[in-house]
Design a protein around this nucleic acid. Sequence first.
DNA 1: AACACCTAGCTAATCGTTTCGTTGGCAGAG
DNA 2: CTCTGCCAACGAAACGATTAGCTAGGTGTT
Lengths: 338, 338
Amino acid sequence: MATIRDVANRAKVSTATVSAVVNDSAYVSPELRARVLAAIGELDYTPSLAARNLKRGRSQLIALVVADLANPFFARLVWAAEAAVAAWGYSLVLFNSDEKPENERRILSRIKMLSCDGVILVPVDVAATQPPRDSEGEPMPTVLFGRTVEGQKADTITIDNVSAARQVTNYLMDLGHTRIGTITGPLHLTTGRGRLDGMLEAMRARGHEPAPAHVRSGEFREDTAYSVARELLTQPDGPTALYVANGVMALGVMRALADLGMKCPDDISIASTDTIPGIGGLRPRLTRTEHPVIDMTNEALRLLVERINRGAGADSRNVVFQPSLVVGESCAPARRRS
Amino acid sequence: MATIRDVANRAKVSTATVSAVVNDSAYVSPELRARVLAAIGELDYTPSLAARNLKRGRSQLIALVVADLANPFFARLVWAAEAAVAAWGYSLVLFNSDEKPENERRILSRIKMLSCDGVILVPVDVAATQPPRDSEGEPMPTVLFGRTVEGQKADTITIDNVSAARQVTNYLMDLGHTRIGTITGPLHLTTGRGRLDGMLEAMRARGHEPAPAHVRSGEFREDTAYSVARELLTQPDGPTALYVANGVMALGVMRALADLGMKCPDDISIASTDTIPGIGGLRPRLTRTEHPVIDMTNEALRLLVERINRGAGADSRNVVFQPSLVVGESCAPARRRS
DNA sequence: AACACCTAGCTAATCGTTTCGTTGGCAGAG
DNA sequence: CTCTGCCAACGAAACGATTAGCTAGGTGTT
């Protein structure tokens, strides 16, 4: 392939001049500029990012590490992030930690090798996640997305999980439900913990308390939620309404209902935090909160690029987004029950 | 950050020896090896990929260019590809061409700059897509995924679209439907064209022909399919069954039905090629073909890695996967109609 | 006319690896 | 005792860009 030296020879200028033209980094007379551009065109020259990165110590790469790529919530994040990253002139390197701390560790060291300029990280474990450091031992520009890590000073983008759960729970109680069960996410995650706390808080505020047997973890997974829901729904004194902590688990619950021959909302009301986009034509439509994923992603990139340019010194910022309740037809008023 | 020279100094060896240890590329005596490893540990040395790539002319990066990241089909591809790419020791750089040829061009030149080792490409336009070339003008190792490009010799992974459409159409006809409409994808894509051809072929084989007004393009998009479906379903002599060419469009059609107050399958039967994963709990479940995305992706990576290692010389291979029909409850037997 | 100053462009050092070709020490053969 | 061969380890030249520092020529001031 053509190198900058080939271009310089052909245009009868020095490599420094070619570099100046390519990067617009210094004034070059119109005549030389034209000669250089012509040579570039004739040789089909593309600067080598590898060489440029080696010299500049940057890579024009932004890494996105999601916790579960099979989850449509994160798929949407990937979609939004690709667009935002491209808009800022970077390229996106994608990793999936699959909720496993050891994967996360492997990925972060890989990111270090690639010397990515920044990282958007959905941390797997609040306790275990180490802030990524670059090759000089400095913390890499990082934005934590969706979940936070205790005691770590970093820029974060989160959703108000407590509020999400509270909104949904209040809605269910407004319909008259008091025997509300929940399928939670992993409680070591702020998303899992916060949603459970919000639900409990809302219920207690009105003098209710969920039966311990009605509070189960579905690990944020479709299949786990499916089996947990089957257990929960076949026990004698089952709940009349179920708050499900995320969208894929809600679909798992729906599948369990279908397999058990139960009807929603006739036999039980289901409401969730988050949902799967694009299923508005299928019934029942879930009552759920929606999260402004696109806004969150754009804000994450804004913060990240700012930090890349301003360095590690600046104070860390934490932006919290508010979810909004969207009512479908998956909930019915509670019927009086013995 | 620690460089190979720092390690060499500390271990009192040459950089060549450190390199040999790191890459296992030459025999090093146990004693020196131990010293080197110790120094690496003490300095927390990570080799710079930028420098390594510059020297080796490789980047350990594989690019994936999808045509529509918002489409769950491609989201699944991304998910499977990330895993496969990691398993082969590469990292995944993700791009979304959003079905726009100009984006695709921009992306391919970016990929060239990054000197990615290989590309998995869902081409946007059969005619316009140029095979990517590396900096030496050689064609880059590339696997075309899902769609093929006319006259281009390249490795391809595709699904048998004609067969998919034929299976679905035959199923509808077996139920007694003859007034079958279709919402197709863009006909300049092999996926769009093939699915329409398969449908027509199947109908003609039994002496039927769809009304021209019942054959419409939904551009593979949810919103377009939604509006087209509304038109199609409100015209006087509407079809009794609809074959929809992909999963997101099928959901758009479902949404249109819901908004029109029509019931599926009571008022109309819907069947599609491809679907959205994980919605098995919602009703009605679509009758559709399913595509072995994971197998397809793994095979794509196998081909790609082979080509990276064997060079451009080898013959190009085209692997065609077979879709399978999965019956839901979105189709009912045709009722006799005037 | 002499001097300082500015600027366009060049030369060459540098980034951190890999790798080719060389060195030096030791063992076995003559 | 010398010569040859072998092999572990090394030194130094790439890879392709950026950029600090320099040169030469032109301009403006006194």
